[in-house]
């Protein structure tokens, strides 16, 4: 029952659960997103363990790759010094850093 293969499964599962807890307990959004990408890669390892290599490939390309890139881009967008429209309109005294 406690074959080394099963221990590998338990290790993957524990990593998956710890990573998903960390995603939502992390204060920094950027770190959350990086942990989310790491979760995607570990999930694709789980797909390999569950005899689904094609799903693993799709997950690595989409779940970790494209979703990760989209999330990172959004973090950059929300963090950037680009001031939203409404704040531009209100701050006409030149405090905002518009060109």
């Amino acid at each position: 029952m406690n074959s080394p293969v099963l221990w590998l499964d338990i290790l993957v599962v524990v990593i998956l659960i710890l990573l998903s807890i960390r995603i939502f307990s992390e204060a920094s959004l950027f770190k959350s997103v990086v942990l989310f990408i790491a979760l995607g890669l570990f999930v694709s390892f789980a797909w390999v363990k569950l005899a689904a290599p094609d799903i693993a490939l799709t997950e690595a390309a989409l779940g970790a790759g494209v979703t990760g890139a989209l999330l990172l881009d959004t973090v950059g967008h929300l963090r950037s010094r680009n001031v939203p429209y409404s704040k531009h309109r209100h701050a006409e005294d030149g405090t905002s850093s518009n060109a």
């Binding site: 998903s20 959004l29 569950l50 799903i55 979703t67 999330l71």
Partner: peptide, 24 residues
């Protein structure tokens, strides 16, 4: 909102895990 989107994605991954395990 970004946490909410990641939450939805983690839930989706969880459902996929159950489905692929059932397939096994």
């Amino acid at each position: 909102l970004l946490h909410k989107v990641m939450g939805l994605n983690v839930m989706a991954v969880a459902v996929f895990l159950v489905l692929v395990s059932v397939a096994r």
